[in-house]
């Protein structure tokens, strides 16, 4: 129905129920209904990748899904990356490697990289370059982003501490 529908999912482990029109994208529901504005919206048609989140562990464009499709899903957004005051290795590496300038694309790159590294911890540099080509950074910081993700991959394999 075009009438609003109740949808339940978890975001960063927290149960959420939202009432959405079918045409509302998952990205808009995350921002407007869940109040989590860390997920950014650039192009709203799947090109820029700023809205990348993890859907049941897979990095996806949240502007290319409808919220009504997320019933029962486990969503993760940039707000869920850090463990309390401790930054995720990717966040720390982005700081250390100066992998962001204006920061608009950063949440999307972080979630893209988190999803790719969790799924493929042994991905090689060529694979990483191909994966990072998914998202756009208009400050042209791609090489620093690549460096940061490589550093984070090493840190994540070494384990916490």
């Amino acid at each position: 129905m075009t009438a609003p529908r109740d949808v339940s999912f978890t975001v960063n482990g927290e149960a959420r129920s939202v009432r959405v029109e079918p045409r509302k994208t998952l990205a808009d529901a995350i921002r407007e209904d869940c109040g989590l504005t860390g997920t950014h919206l650039g192009c709203e048609h799947g090109v820029c990748g700023a809205c990348t989140i993890l859907l049941d562990g897979a990095p996806v464009r949240s502007c290319l899904m409808f919220a009504a499709q997320a019933e029962g899903a486990e969503l993760r957004t940039v707000e869920g990356l850090a463990d309390g005051e401790t930054l995720h290795p990717l966040q720390q590496a982005f700081i250390d490697c100066h992998a962001l300038q204006c920061g608009f694309c950063t949440p999307g790159f972080l979630m893209l990289a988190a999803g790719v590294l969790e799924r493929e911890p042994d991905i090689d540099e060529e694979g990483l370059r191909e994966a990072l080509a998914s998202n756009l950074c208009r400050c042209t910081g791609y090489l620093n982003i690549l460096d940061a993700v490589k550093a984070a991959a090493a840190a994540m394999k070494a384990g916490p501490g």
Binding site: G46, G49, T52, L55, A58, P59, V60, R61, L64, M65, L112, G115, V116, E130, A131, A133, S134, N135
Partner: peptide, 12 residues
């Protein structure tokens, strides 16, 4: 498959 869209596109 590596030539199709981008990584997140290929997840869906």
């Amino acid at each position: 498959v590596r030539h199709i869209g981008h990584y997140p596109i290929r997840m869906r």
